[in-house]
Write a protein that binds this DNA or RNA. Structure first.
Lengths: 132, 132
DNA sequence: CTAGTTGCAAAGAGTTTGCATGGCG
DNA sequence: CGCCATGCAAACTCTTTGCAACTAG
């Protein structure tokens, strides 16, 4: 059950690592990897496995019905709240200190304990905002 | 294009209003309304229409692939950031002042302009947290 | 009347699964 | 050599769509 137990898994993980700052739909991933030595079902099965291992995060875009996946297997992604730009689709991490502040404030005022792994803040990133 | 132009629309909207603090899947809604005088396709078509009108918000739960809908047609839901409890599934509104603070902080420190309509913070509500 | 909405049933998209094959350790 | 992952294709689920009948205004 190693990270690279099979060639297919390696292909998928390397692809995901390369695109770790985007949330991509499973269908899109499968399509992109169509030329490679990995089948559609292997893509889906490995995504599910990686999700269970915590290396991949499953999310969804509002207005779409596809399952979106994002690689969060690298250190810098762990325990971070994500910011997702609805214009360019890129994903950013919220600074730890800020996230702590937000989490604390929510807990005190609302009694709500935020789950950083699942929380995605939607909006416009600085770049897209500048471009109008 | 009134709110209650047809009986089917009325049935759906009343159902949604009654469950406005939950995000329900379209499939579930259709199922619940199976006994009523409304067909599956009318449910889907009206949900899409209501979404466009802004009366309904489409979201998604992580780990699931269904489209979830929540009624936000009432005044108290507008322009609010939602808090969604991953345990009981209920949805809460973030107080306006707090939301303003959060939005401002994000804009200043990250240059990220949050979209309240689309943002859902995931975690545990006070009640579920108390119950362990 | 006329435009817009419905219900039905069939099509579609994305995802999942059964089973035989094949490769990793 | 045994077991787990793969590929293929068929099955599934949820959602969308075409079309004729119907309904609200």
């Amino acid at each position: 059950m190693n990270k690279y137990s099979t060639i297919q898994r390696k292909i998928l993980v390397e692809y995901l690592e390369k695109h770790h700052d985007f949330a991509l739909s499973a269908a899109r991933i499968a399509e992109d990897l169509a030329g490679e030595n990995i089948s559609v079902s292997a893509v889906y099965r490995n995504l599910a496995a990686l999700e269970e291992e915590g290396a991949v995060r499953r999310m969804a875009k509002s207005g779409e019905r596809l399952a979106y996946y994002q690689y969060v297997g690298m250190e810098k992604c762990r325990n971070r709240i994500h910011l997702s730009c609805t214009s360019c689709g890129r994903s950013f991490h919220l600074d730890v200190k800020e996230a702590d502040g937000l989490a604390e404030a929510l807990l005190e005022t609302e009694g709500f304990e935020i789950n950083r792994e699942e929380t995605v803040l939607k909006g416009l990133c600085a770049e897209c905002r500048a471009q109008g």
